[in-house]
Design a protein around this nucleic acid. Structure first.
Length: 1048
RNA sequence: GGGCGUGUAACUCAGCGGUUAGAGUGCCUCCCUUACAAGGAGGAAGUCGGGGGUUCGAGUCCCUCCACGCCCACCA
């Protein structure tokens, strides 16, 4: 007797047991193997600050499904895990923590100390993330765990930066950054929030002054206009050189939401075709606070005649649009009026030192005094706020490093010494990156996402890679600014000679500021030389995406050689060998980072290796809350996967995630709070968002609890609810169903002997099952190949539950009791279950492994069509495939008719709840009447329909179609009319008959339409004809039933 | 403003040109039958967002309108 399994699947026990088992056996570790084709995935590295959330759970589950499946298919499957240092987010978290605990800012700590603290923090959180990943069953090669700031990645960053710098792809430029005046750092666009704020909309005027024209210098400037298709053209000057001079008392009015920026105005701007102002173009106005005389220029892109007064002031240093305008009209000049702390600098004259908000009032007041103030209106203005400090962002002009994305028309002046790598291409990086997708080398699934990738790259906007932070890869550039051109030129000529042999250094010479920039490939003696000569390394670090962009090849050890690995549980990558894993197979991620990350990985892959980083990009949906909103910490609507795992089990969570992964871009996950007192599920309501609700009363037990969510603090008053979601019940139930199906088999395996089967000798129900197994296996494999994870889950569920369990197992019960039929039934059951466990493993590895081992105890040799020794673990078992010849439409349709019959009998039994004896009589009579049609299958109708005994009779009858009841059954039960509600039954029948008639009419109309008969495929026409016959019969039968009822 | 997506049963979703539109959960009835109550059997529940069109045939393709969501630009 086999060991009997417990009655229900214990997810927790299985999870603990098999995680250890798998890792001890080293199934997830991969080494290069010339005999096996590699299948590689690099994980999108989660931020070290990140707690596990449902989006990650989805992402990781899908990758693991692919990896486990390919591993079974015999690929050399490698999944590289790791984490991202996530520059600003991480630094911000630690800074906040330090401040909360020690009341110290980063300036108090200093750079080295802060970085040290962040490393400590990182170690702790990285460990947490890795643990959570493990617990989800992720079959990563943990020995290859990487971090974007570790030495392996750092070297790749250094190498890439150096190559790009040397080739002139990286250059020094100016950019308006979002400046956080509180934290005194720049922040990326996605680290800001835009909030509607009550503000003002001031209208002022500037007086036009008499001034000598700059003549052609200004008049000759072309006018810029944006055409409807978005292109910007340089038009002819619209100005009439003989334009009348103006009278001295003229004014030009404009509006602003930020009056203080008037201090930095360098022009006012109108539309070239605006008749109101045409004559003023080329004149000057007086900026009263600073006394500057600034020109009136024409720019059709910046000025919109329909907005405001049609005239706009231009503050290039403090507004992105104005900045763009300045780039088109550099002659107007650019004036920065802000200090880094948000106060006005010396350019603001008498306003120097004032905070920008105070300056705003003062500047406005002055305009009033001068009679230049027109009015002020209240207006809600979108105010950019820093996510971290919650203070307003100031656009500020600053020097930054950029990667040039556009086509390579003019190289940046640079020089090289040492062993520079020959560059791959001088093609524009953006174009090259786009070509990889348009040529089909990189494919998106679903393909619509290729569009966002191409559209974004098509703008060819340069990539600003410097960040004013301390946490990250410090920019490996040493710069020195010279005060005299002669010295600058001298140094410029002599620099290459200073470089010691064996050192790789590259130079860029910035003419306008007399600055020399030196990039070093590695830290060596030359670094000390430079520093000794007054060169200073950049204080900035690289954009965090710069290092993640290299992830697919940096994690494999590019550019080599092997670096020493400090940790015993890690293996250093060896590019020499590991490059066989590159390019990787598929990248699995969500649509938010197609541009930020995916595009840049393609870019660096092509730049560094002249090879794409992956052939497929699979974009999965985003997990939304129950109201269709994205989950986020600030909304407090996130769901903790650990709650889900605890409540439903890991397999259930994974199944739920797979089921969620359809082709749409969003998928909702409504949750409920599980009352910690009584277990009642209380649905989460929208007003519970943003953690506004601190306590809830359970509608069941009336006790209070705190709703679940990412609360920063413990609640000492009342317990916090865990969250649940009925979307995971399906998976939990499914795992349990698998468990019990196996349990059933194990209880019936006494005397099991392995043996081959011959399809043609099998009974019909076996043929049916194998047909379904072969079909399902094929479909599941196909769905995986196309990344249709939801279909995978559904196909498995339907086959296992609705076919294998509901029908086949029930049918096998009789045969297992019959000594003659028993061995074959056991072989088929064991063989099919074996296939099921293999198919289920990628999605639900824990339950699959538990059952695999249980089955191995008594039936280690099994399989179809011929048995084989089962592998020691389903993780490394072979992915199944069955002969196409097993698939039989004929068998399946015969079986379907039998199923219809059984359902019909069951329906009768269920609808008329009479005493057992009567029900039995009726059922037997029904079954007898219909069974004869089905030969061997007839044997099962009785048991399946819940009838104890069955004697097959000769009466044959057409089986019912769904919804109708065959005639003999009806005769049987109508004789019991006294026991049933005749009136209700008549009503039901009337409705049914009416429905049938309606559908019949439709079908007949179709058939009498010549075009249909001629145009539709013959089998469709035949189907319709058969349908008419069937439905007519049904109606006739039902009408007869009606008459019987009426007379009863 | 541009792009993308979504409106199908009470809820979450399948169905993507061809029989009488499906599943899970929830609901109702019956059943603790020796694999499984995390279960079994049955049932009720849908003018497939509105309006046009193409087609022999339209949740399914096209146009349009409405509602919702996401992303990107812009708002002097």
């Amino acid at each position: 007797m086999a060991t009997e399994l417990p009655k229900a699947y214990d997810a927790k026990a299985a999870q603990e047991k098999w995680l250890t088992f798998w890792e001890e056996r080293g199934y997830f570790h991969s080494n290069p193997d010339p005999a096996k084709k590699p299948f590689t995935i690099v994980i999108p590295p989660p931020n070290v600050t990140c707690a596990l959330h449902m989006g990650l759970a989805l992402n990781h589950t899908l990758q693991d499904v692919l990896i486990r499946w390919r591993r079974m298919q015999g690929f050399n499957a490698l999944w590289i895990p790791g984490t991202d240092h996530a520059g600003i987010a991480t630094q911000a978290v630690v800074e906040r923590l330090v401040f909360a605990q020690e009341k110290k800012t980063r300036h108090d700590l200093g750079r080295d100390e802060l970085v040290k603290r962040i490393w400590a923090w990182k170690d702790q959180y990285e460990a947490r993330i890795i643990t959570q990943l493990r617990e989800m069953g992720a079959s990563c090669d943990w020995r290859r765990t990487r971090f974007t700031l570790d030495p392996v990645c750092a070297r790749a960053v250094r190498e890439t930066f150096f190559r790009m710098f040397k080739d002139g792809y990286i250059y020094r430029g100016k950019r308006l950054v979002n400046w956080d005046t509180h934290l005194q750092t720049s922040v990326a666009d996605d680290e800001t929030d835009t909030v509607e704020t009550k503000g003002g909309f001031w209208t002022f005027k500037y007086q036009v002054v008499e001034k000598e024209y700059l003549g052609d210098e200004l008049f000759g400037k072309p006018v810029y206009e944006e055409l409807p298709d978005g292109t910007i053209v340089k038009g002819d000057t619209l100005l009439d050189p003989d334009a009348p001079n103006l009278d001295a008392t003229q004014f030009i009015s404009f509006s602003t939401t930020r009056p203080e920026t008037m201090l930095g105005d360098t022009a006012v701007c109108v539309h070239p075709n605006d008749e109101r102002y045409k004559h003023l173009i080329g004149q000057y106005v007086l900026q009263p606070h600073t006394g500057r005389e600034i020109p009136i220029i024409a720019d059709g892109i910046l000025a919109d005649p329909k907005l405001g007064t049609g005239c706009v002031k231009v503050t290039p240093a403090h507004d992105p649009n104005d900045y763009a305008c300045w780039q088109r009209h550099p002659e107007i000049g650019i004036i920065n009026i802000l200090n880094l702390d948000g106060t006005i600098n010396e350019q603001g004259g008498e306003y120097k030192g004032l905070d920008r908000t105070k300056a705003r009032d003062a500047v406005t007041e002055k305009m009033k005094e001068l009679g230049l103030y027109i009015d002020r209106a209240d207006r809600d203005i979108p105010l950019k706020i820093s996510d971290r400090s919650k203070t307003p962002i100031e656009p500020l002009l600053s020097d930054q490093w950029f990667v040039k994305m556009g086509d390579f028309d003019s190289a940046v002046a640079c020089g090289v010494a040492g062993n520079a790598t020959p560059q791959a291409t001088k093609q524009g990086l953006a174009q090259m990156t786009m070509d990889a997708v348009t040529s089909g080398r990189v494919k998106f699934y679903p393909d619509r996402y290729a569009r966002s990738y191409l559209d974004w790259l098509g703008e060819k906007r340069d990539w600003c890679i410097s960040r004013q932070l301390w946490w990250g890869h410090r920019i490996p550039v040493w710069s020195k600014r010279f005060t005299e051109r002669g010295v600058f030129n001298f140094q410029r000529k002599g620099l290459a000679l200073m470089v010691p042999a064996g050192t790789d250094a590259a130079f860029q010479f910035q003419e306008d500021t007399l600055t020399i920039h030196v990039a070093l490939r590695a830290d060596d003696t030359f670094k000390a030389d430079l520093e000794g000569n007054g060169y200073k390394q950049s204080e900035d670090v690289l954009d965090t995406w710069f290092s993640s962009a290299l992830w697919p090849h940096s994690t494999l050890g590019w550019p080599g050689p092997v670096l020493p690995e400090a940790r015993a549980d890690r293996t250093a990558p060896d590019w020499e060998k590991d490059q066989s894993y590159y390019p990787t197979s598929v990248l699995v991620t969500n649509r938010d980072i197609i541009t930020l990350w995916v595009a840049r990985m393609v870019l660096t892959g092509l730049f560094n290796l002249n090879e794409i980083p992956f052939s497929h990009v699979y974009i999965h949906p985003k997990v939304m809350d129950g109201f269709g909103e994205g989950m986020s910490k600030s909304k407090g609507n996130g769901v903790d996967p650990l709650d889900i795992i605890e409540r439903y089990g890991t397999d259930a969570m994974r199944y739920g995630m797979a089921k969620l992964a359809t082709e749409t871009q969003d998928s909702r996950l409504p949750v409920s709070n599980v009352c910690p007192h009584c277990g009642k599920e209380v649905p989460v309501k929208q007003e519970h968002m943003y953690m506004r609700t601190k306590k809830l009363a359970c509608p069941e037990c009336k006790k209070e609890f705190r709703p679940g969510g990412p609360w920063p603090m413990e609640d000492t008053e009342r317990p916090t609810a865990k969250q649940g979601s009925d979307r995971f019940e399906e998976g939990r139930n499914f795992a349990n169903k698998l468990w019990n199906a196996t349990r059933f088999l194990l209880m019936n395996l006494d005397g099991y002997t392995p043996g081959a089967i011959k399809l043609e000798e099998l009974p019909t129900e076996d043929k049916w099952l194998l047909s379904r197994l072969a079909t399902t296996t094929k479909a599941v494999t196909g769905a995986l190949e196309g990344y249709h994870f939801s279909d995978v889950a559904r196909l498995l569920y339907d086959f296992v539950w609705s076919e294998f369990c509901d029908w086949y197992i029930e049918m096998s019960k009789g045969r297992l009791k019959d000594a003659a039929a028993r061995p074959l039934a056991q072989r088929v059951l064991a063989g099919v279950l074996d296939g099921i466990l293999r198919l289920v493993q990628p999605v639900m590895p824990f339950v699959a492994e538990s059952l695999w081992h249980a089955l191995n105890e008594t039936a280690s040799e099994r399989g179809l069509p011929a048995p084989a020794k089962a592998e020691e673990s389903v993780v490394i078992a072979k992915w199944p495939s069955y002969p196409d010849a097993w698939i039989s439409a004929e068998v399946e349709s015969r079986f379907a008719r039998m199923q219809d019959l059984v359902k019909s009998v069951r329906e009768v039994r269920n609808r008329y709840q009479v005493d057992d004896k009567t029900r039995l009589d009726v059922s037997v009579k029904c079954a007898e009447a219909v069974a004869a049609d089905f030969n061997a299958l007839a044997t099962f109708i009785g048991p399946l329909a819940g009838i104890a005994t069955l004697t097959a009779g000769p009466t044959a009858t057409k089986p019912k179609q769904a919804g109708g009841i065959v005639r003999p059954e009806f005769e049987a039960y109508v004789s019991l009319a006294g026991l049933i509600d005749v009136a209700a039954e008549i009503k039901r029948l009337e409705k049914q008959i009416a429905d049938k008639r309606k559908s019949l009419e439709g079908t007949k109309a179709k058939l009498s339409n010549e075009k249909f008969v001629a145009g539709a495929p013959p089998e469709v026409v035949q189907l319709q004809r058969d349908l008419v016959v069937d439905v007519e019969k049904q109606i006739a039968a039902m009408e007869e039933n009606m008459r019987d009822l009426e007379s009863a």
